[in-house]
Design a protein around this nucleic acid. Structure first.
Length: 633
RNA sequence: GGGCCCGUAGCUCAGCUUGGAUAGAGCAGCACCCUUCUAAGGUGAUGGUCACGGGUUCAAAUCCCGUCGGGCCCGCCA
């Protein structure tokens, strides 16, 4: 079934094209341009508007207002597009409410859960990497922004028929983890709280001690080497601790309804010798330099001078040489990431062993992990990857793309997408893991756990007072869902590139442009349909001639759901979805408040169909955002 | 030295990629609307030099150049 919205736009385009022909004969203008000049108009002017007259003004040597009027005069109404007029240079059209309305509602009734879906990603495999938090601390609100973005982007991609692998990279060999492991082995403290939180607090203490005592620093540096060597006791202990920490982090993820498909551990990358394989591939391609003298003597490097055209960042950097392998033989972060991406794109064969990490996540899916022992399986290759990493890593991500260009894979280079997002700050400080900024003060921390706890508490107060929630045993569950809706919606609704300042006032807001408002709208629609009776809203009405302006405003918005989904997916801006959802909810609320539905006589059945379609669409959009629609609140 | 992101109402933010009609929401504040489908809502009024200066265009918040503010990046750290 075709989209009425797209049908209407192309019908309008055809009508205007014909009208131009009959008014002026053959006119020299770009046919493609016509479609671009057609937009949805604010309803005082009509439903659709076209600004082609301005473009034609030059070649026709006429006033655009005159042109618009002449085109409108020659235009013949179609099946969906009726009433064509002209005003101040624009050609405006009204849609035929009955035929457009029935087309939209029938489509939603037929597609149900699939309404809004798109096929643009069919046959395309994409890896989404997120949130890749170090396994030595709990998720804080900054990590949460990443995890939520990753989750919504993945949902969007799936809804657009992409084959999505949700991947979480775990760097268990870094200095950070080593510090935590050192603390675990030497500080003699017993975990007395959730393991990730406890470990994160250890880390802060160890870091302080390390900066005070050189001997500690040395021990930790030694520990890093022992961990990287693999097979050592230290390596085993480190992995055990890190796994325990990741398991704790996934308790958080699970509460937030955030799920992944695969964990990839740095220590497994090392033991599978991905780096050596990658360097050998790179060496064969002739992209590596091995200076014998000078500043980089004994290193393996690449030269960014050759990829200047890739980004302005490379034009005049302080240094155009990038080290992959240090003179002491260890690899840099960029080298590791390069190797990892060769694996993602299948340049290096997948020799990882996999086992189950979590049997069943909240979405029902299994979370697997790379592991020293387990089953072989091929995950790749990816057609493209989306790395959700904050803006500060823009430069290394560019180097990664540059490396593939140098390797001779320009198409891979352009298939690596860095979805860069702004940092989350807290007033008067940063969320530094090292210094413990995430721990907050006065008992209020910035962990994702604490955030959810606090927001749930406030939600529970409100739900507890709700006359609509009569089953008190459900209060906790409903409050939790509302809290999640509030938090997720808030994070997603800010454009990714913007920095955010976390504030409790903002986090605890349930009114206005918020997730709870959207859930509330859904609940209202649900109850209305319940009261109307079980059979009523299942009917698709044949006659929509009774639709008023309020209902039709809703229908117009309903009709563009798939276009909004596609746009949000293509541009990787999930806030397009929250904007759309708010607009839809607002239009519905206005309609809901303005006219009665039940007992409205002639109009009742058509209005119920609008309510039912809206409920379905709001529900679909909420699920895409990872928010649970509630029947009651 | 070079690069990136941000600057829109008192506050928090959409809109900018693809230029179009009087620049949109929410919050705060003001005035209203619950014996009537959930008031977490709706209505009305108020609130803007779209940081600033140029340019392109019939048309600029949107594109280009420059300036000023704020944040970030350019390591044999991770």
């Amino acid at each position: 079934m075709n989209s009425p919205s797209r049908d209407a736009k192309s019908e309008f385009e055809r009508i205007i094209d014909d009208a131009i022909l009959s008014a002026y004969g053959k006119v020299d203008f770009e046919r493609k341009m016509l479609g671009d000049t057609i937009k949805y108009a604010s309803s005082e002017f009509g439903d659709l508007s076209c600004s082609i007259s301005f473009a034609l003004a030059r070649s026709l040597r006429k006033d655009p207002r005159k042109i618009a009027a002449e085109i409108a005069k020659h235009a013949k109404a179609g099946r969906l597009v009726a009433e064509i007029g002209a005003e101040s240079g624009y050609i405006n059209a009204r849609l035929d409410r009955a035929s457009y309305g029935s087309a939209v509602i029938e489509r939603i009734a037929a597609m149900k859960k699939d309404y809004g879906r798109s096929e643009i990603g069919k046959g395309h495999r994409v890896f989404v990497e997120s949130p890749s938090v170090n396994p030595n601390k709990p998720w804080h609100v900054g990590h949460l922004r990443n995890a939520i973005l990753g989750s919504v982007i993945s949902n969007l991609l799936e809804f657009c028929s992409y084959d999505v692998e949700r991947e979480n990279y775990i760097d268990d060999l870094g200095l950070q983890v080593a510090e935590s492991v050192w603390g675990y082995m030497h500080m003699g403290n017993e975990p007395d709280k959730k393991f990730d939180t406890w470990l994160g607090e250890q880390y802060v203490m160890v870091n302080k001690r390390m900066s005070e005592k050189a001997a500690v620093k040395e021990e930790i540096n030694h520990l890093v080497k022992r961990m990287e060597a693999g097979g050592t006791d230290e390596a085993k202990t480190a992995r055990e601790i890190a796994e325990k920490c990741v398991a704790a982090q996934y308790e958080t993820a699970s509460m937030y309804g955030i799920c992944h498909d695969i964990l990839v551990w740095e220590s497994d990358i090392v033991s599978e010798k991905l780096l050596e394989k990658a360097l050998s591939v790179a060496d064969k391609a002739g992209m590596l330099e091995k200076p014998k003298e000078g500043k980089y003597a004994g290193c393996v490097t690449i030269n960014l001078d050759k990829v200047k055209e890739l980004a302005k960042d490379f034009e005049n950097p302080l240094e155009d040489t990038k080290v992959l392998v240090r003179s002491n033989g260890t690899a840099t972060y960029v080298a590791k990431d390069f190797a990892f991406h060769m694996w993602k794109f299948g340049i290096i064969e997948d020799t990882f062993k996999y086992r189950t990490f979590i049997r069943k996540q909240v979405d029902g899916g299994e979370l697997r992990t790379t592991s020293p022992s387990g089953e072989r399986k091929r995950l790749g290759p990816a057609d493209s990857v989306i790395n959700i990493i904050d803006d500060r890593q823009r430069y290394p991500q560019l180097i990664l793309k540059a490396a593939f260009k140098l390797l001779g894979y320009p198409e891979i280079s352009s298939s690596i997408v860095h979805l860069s997002y702004g940092t989350v700050g807290v007033s008067g400080g940063s969320l530094s893991g090292r210094k413990g900024g995430w721990m907050g003060e006065d008992g209020r921390s910035y962990t994702a756990d604490y955030l959810l706890e606090e927001v749930s508490k406030k939600a529970a107060e409100i739900v507890g007072n709700s006359k609509k929630v009569t089953d008190t045993s459900k209060v906790g569950e409903i409050a939790r869902a509302i809290a999640l809706g509030a938090i997720k919606f808030d994070f997603v609704s800010v454009a990714p590139e913007k920095d955010m300042l976390f504030s409790w006032e903002r986090a605890l807001k349930f009114e206005g442009d918020t997730g709870p408002y959207c859930i509330y709208t859904y609940a209202r629609a649900t109850r209305l349909l319940e009261k109307a009776g079980p059979a009523e809203h299942k009917l698709v009405e044949k006659d929509y001639s009774a639709l008023g302006a309020g209902e039709f405003a809703v229908i117009k918005l309903l009709s563009v759901a798939d276009e909004m989904v596609e746009k949000a997916c293509r541009e990787r801006r999930p806030n397009i979805l929250t904007d759309y959802l708010l607009e839809l909810c607002t239009a519905f609320s206005k309609f809901y408040e303005a006219v009665p539905v039940i007992g409205s006589g002639e109009a009742e059945r058509a209005r119920l169909a609008v309510v039912s379609s809206t409920r379905q669409t709001i529900g679909n959009m909420l699920l895409l955002l990872g928010i649970k629609p509630l029947e009651r609140m």
